[in-house]
Amino acid sequence: MPFQLRPYFPPVFSTPALENAPDAVFRPAPRDGVAPENFHAMSIFPEYFKIAGQWHLARESRMDCVAVWDRGRIDVREFRRLRQGDLVAVGRTEQGEEGILVHPDGFRERRVARDVFAFRQGRSRETAFSRDYDELYELLRHERDHGKVVWVMGPAFAFDHDARNAFSRLIAGGFVHAVLAGNALATHDLEAAYLNTALGQNIYTQESQPNGHYNHLDTINRVRLHGSIPAFLKAEQIENGILHTCERHGVPYILAGSIRDDGPLPPVLADVYAAQDAMRAEIRSATTVICMATALHTIAAGNMTPSYRVLADGTVRQVYFYCVDISEFAVNKLSDRGSLSARGIVTNVQDFIVHLSKELIQP
């Protein structure tokens, strides 16, 4: 049976509480970058605002941003994008009391009846993830043709020969529509392609090479000499790896810089807000996000990703969000930061991606 998205059930606006709800109040931003007092902060859930008696859904949302009424629509903006005079929604109730409705149960996810006291209700290294894998296989087959899958990646993949090859196969197979990462993932992937090492260790045997601690710096320096990653790949005749496969198949990759970066590589975005903008440009059309072995990038992507997407025809569909990490702390921290719809899988990400590739890419 083909994968079926859960239908969206909008609020019942004919209830007395919502029919009699007042219009939402919008107040002007007092200055650039500053919201008015009592501003309403957005969540990951669909949110509606009553304006002139009609309820309006924020079509593109983001956690911890504000709602601006602009040219007949709700525009969700970061504080840094506010301009003096922008009309910002105010009010901190969520059930229509102030014309603002947060709708957390629109997709009516299956809930299993549980005893008040029961064992193993969290998601940990002891959790059985067989069902999660089966659902993910079917989801990705659906999204390959009908959605957009964004992968948020830490550098762990580049340390392993099989993991690099497995993810490259997923890119070539159409299961990857954008990659969000940092300088480290790109550096070690290119080092692996150029010198067959990652941080000086052979990517298959894990044996350290003589003077190998120079390898990643030599790789960065060589890329900088050529001026860009595509030029490096061509000049050095690189024919393998994650970035090579992205370039070959036209898959965009965003490399967000950090204060610890070596080099960095030429395309790394050193301006944190430029990096945030570039990440959000990919996230805002994503329908599935899979984050692997990178706590900070995962939380950043989680903050940008609402639980829903409004398609071009007006259909509201669910956004699926996965966090894969060998650390239970990383998986659970995402929920602690507000990404309540995230599904966690506690496992080695290298094994995870090899397992995924074997199932999705048929010989």
Rank of each mutant, 00 (worst) to 15 (best):
E37G: 01
V116M: 07
A192F: 02
G241L: 09
R6V: 14
S357A: 14
G200F: 14
E247I: 12
A275K: 05
H177R: 09
H216Y: 12
A193G: 15
E247H: 10
L190Y: 03
N183D: 14
Y253T: 02
I220M: 04
T294P: 08
M304I: 03
I44Y: 14
R248G: 01
R343S: 12
I74R: 08
S14I: 02
L199W: 00
R141C: 01
V88Y: 04
F79Y: 13
A128C: 08
V152D: 05
D336P: 00
L340R: 11
L217Y: 12
M63D: 04
L195N: 05
P266R: 05
A58Y: 01
Y8C: 04
A58K: 05
D189T: 12
Q121R: 09
F13E: 06
C291D: 00
G33M: 09
I51D: 00
I361F: 10
D277V: 10
E97N: 02
H40D: 13
F13M: 06
V346I: 13
G96M: 11
Q350S: 12
A301S: 15
P10N: 02
V179W: 07
I203N: 08
R81H: 12
V102G: 01
K50Q: 04
H226D: 15
H103W: 14
D262E: 14
L233Q: 10
N303T: 06
F107K: 08
H177K: 14
I203F: 04
L140Y: 02
Y320K: 07
R80L: 06
E138G: 11
N211G: 09
G241E: 08
N165T: 13
A330H: 14
V76A: 03
R280P: 00
A186N: 09
S335T: 10
A163Q: 04
A274I: 07
S327C: 04
A158I: 02
R71I: 10
D262C: 03
P46F: 03
Q121P: 03
S307R: 15
D218W: 10
T305Y: 14
L180V: 15
H355C: 01
L139W: 02
R6I: 12
V12C: 08
D70Y: 01
Q350Y: 00
V76Y: 00
E60L: 06
E78T: 13
I242C: 07
P230H: 02
V223D: 01
A193F: 02
